[in-house]
Design a protein around this nucleic acid. Structure first.
Lengths: 245, 245
DNA sequence: GCACACCTTTGATTTTGATCAAGTTGCCGA
DNA sequence: TCGGCAACTTGATCAAAATCAAAGGTGTGC
């Protein structure tokens, strides 16, 4: 599931065009979905596709506004840090999402790959030009922003009001529902984050995360093959532990 | 500052038109700013202005998507609750903002006035019609969504990684910078939230909030006239305590 | 002026999760 | 197959914030 099948040549046969997401429209409803064939071709000429290794920055703090990208496969962590190094992951972007901040002042965000991640990026000005031509595109970007806002607010409830146990269960539930959206909620999956990343996502320490994962295992809420691989026998049970009604 | 001056008759003299924000465009750059005079008139015919008392719901959980509103004066709390009653305020909307979720599935949010609040609201379908006519309007809404997303993510860092002391200082800083945006950062202001609300915003208990406020006072970071009125002698000092570099 | 309600503060104690400190496990290259 | 190292787990102790429990304040109606 982590590697993407080569499905792009279906639409575009010109080998001068870099490998891009022009054909992704069906697969992951990226920005491409709202464009005309001409605009798609235009976009593809300015796009570059590349693989980002875990821990590598997709775009640096502040540069976020300079480019815009579809995530083809993988998971990207968006995080913020305090001056003394305390870190908080403020969002996870999964494969069908796209990333970037058109029109806004830079936000002090770091975006880095959590696992091997393929992205397809284009310069900001190209997107802005296309937005002015294709009214549907801004609508698409707006919806993505609203979706991220909803997710951020859900997560605020988790960060502010849930116990460590509920936080870890909530995290597992998020991963189960997002890791392979095409196939719905997954009952068996690889965690895309290390214990340290999970701690930074949940506002906990790695020791607490580890202990709570152990507790969930002992309580038979999850099964653990190795530290990354998780099986959820009953999603209802997990949701209940996560405090999701 | 809490009461709004009557400045609406400047533009619209027809007494059939309900009291609306048609004239707010300059004052608070609400949705009106991007509309033509005709569209403004159209909008104003469908708007109702009303005052909402503290604690009153502006729109209920789930209804959020059915209407759309400019906040003329006051402060609105957006909150989420767990089934057992634990509550988290996930956003504060101040006077020049507008509220509502066009195009999206309902999000389980409650919006209620924190203090006396004047709002001007219109049905969702009117906004959606105007969006399809005025391309600039969607752009405006999109920018508002991105602004709220940035604020939500900043707050996630506070919720997940700051101490109680830093959280309370961060809260005071937010209020200082948002309570009267026209006049920049305020050094003396009334808190729009009770201790219980502050606790729900910060993911703390009221006792902890109270103790931290007392500590900030004893450390001369703030002065307190009564439990609501706060003076900040040095904004730099407050920011430092809040962990804002 | 008084009583009641509500909000806030303060104090004592408990609990949750952080911190400090070893161990394990598993993976990779030699 | 064996180190070596990084990631993870587990245990012991500590500290920050929650909880439990009383007081203070402040405002309102009587």
């Amino acid at each position: 599931m982590q590697t993407v099948t080569e499905h792009r040549r279906k639409d575009i046969h010109n080998s001068d065009i870099p490998a891009v997401c022009s054909a992704c429209e069906a697969r992951h409803g990226g920005v491409c979905g709202t464009l005309t064939p001409d605009q798609l071709l235009d976009l593809s000429r300015h796009s570059t596709r590349r693989r980002v290794e875990p821990g590598r920055e997709v775009v640096g703090q502040g540069e976020m506004t300079d480019s815009y990208a579809n995530i083809i496969s993988g998971v990207v962590k968006l995080s913020k840090v305090l001056s003394d190094g305390r870190q908080q992951i403020v969002g996870l972007q999964f494969a069908p999402d796209f990333m970037g901040r058109p029109f806004t002042r830079e936000s002090a965000l770091t975006a880095e790959a959590a696992i091997d991640t393929d992205i397809c990026s284009f310069p900001r000005n190209v997107i802005e030009r296309l937005v002015s031509e294709a009214p549907g595109l801004e609508h698409r970007l707006h919806e993505q922003a609203l979706k991220e806002l909803d997710e951020a607010r859900d997560w605020m409830l988790t960060l502010g009001r849930k116990t460590a146990q509920e936080k870890v269960a909530s995290f597992l539930y998020i991963i189960a529902t997002h890791i392979d959206p095409e196939n719905g909620t997954a009952t068996e999956f690889d965690l895309p984050l290390s214990r340290a990343d999970i701690a930074d996502y949940l506002g906990l320490t790695i020791e607490t995360v580890s202990r709570q994962v152990t507790k969930l295992r002992k309580d038979n809420v999850i099964r653990i093959e190795n530290s990354r691989r998780v099986t959820v026998p009953s999603m209802d049970r997990l949701m209940h532990v996560a405090g999701i009604d």
